[in-house]
């Protein structure tokens, strides 16, 4: 039962990750097209800048749940790696639950943000004048996924769910 739950959460975060990949493709296409349009056709597009920023927001947040499943978020393991496995898992489950609570707060705040944005009638500053609540919805959706992933990871650490080998990316490029 719990195992099925963990799987379903995994599928959800994978779906969100695919959207984040679409965001990355969107960033690449918008930025590159803008340069080409300007240098070859001599005029700028009205959508490039806006779309690239929405793409970045999708990458930053929609991918976060999946990255957690890969254990890919940066963590300081200086102390925890020296603890006994029992203690380490206990502490890990506790921090996961705290993190889930934080995500729940962001989720709540994100929903009211999207509502407020509709009340304000906020639209993008660019020429597209996109109603901002649409890209802003990425925040509550992503933090809902991330919250679920933290809960699932705490189950794993408590030994309630056993995952087969985690889907580790081949050998990812590290950030800095």
């Amino acid at each position: 039962m719990l195992k099925l739950l963990d799987r379903v959460i995994g599928w959800i975060s994978l779906a969100a990750a695919v959207l984040a990949i679409a965001g990355l493709a969107c960033v690449f296409v918008s930025v590159t097209w803008e340069v080409i349009a300007r240098s070859v056709f001599g005029h700028a597009t009205i959508w490039s800048n806006e779309f690239s920023i929405y793409g970045v927001i999708a990458i930053a947040f929609l991918g976060a749940g999946y990255v957690l499943r890969l254990n890919g978020h940066l963590e300081v393991d200086l102390i925890t790696s020296r603890l006994s496995p029992r203690l380490r898992n206990g502490l890990g489950a506790a921090t996961d639950l705290v993190a889930a609570v934080f995500c729940a707060m962001v989720l709540w705040s994100g929903i009211s943000f999207v509502e407020l944005s509709q009340i304000l009638g906020a639209v993008s500053v660019g020429e597209l004048r996109i109603p901002l609540w649409i890209p802003q919805s990425i925040i509550p959706v992503s933090f809902c996924v991330l919250m679920l992933e933290f809960l699932a990871r705490s189950l794993v650490r408590l030994g309630l769910v056993h995952r087969e080998a985690a889907p580790v990316a081949a050998d990812p490029v590290l950030p800095v």
Partner: peptide, 9 residues
């Protein structure tokens, strides 16, 4: 802030 930065009005 500038009156124009954010709303549909």
């Amino acid at each position: 802030n500038l009156t124009n930065v954010w709303t549909a009005d």
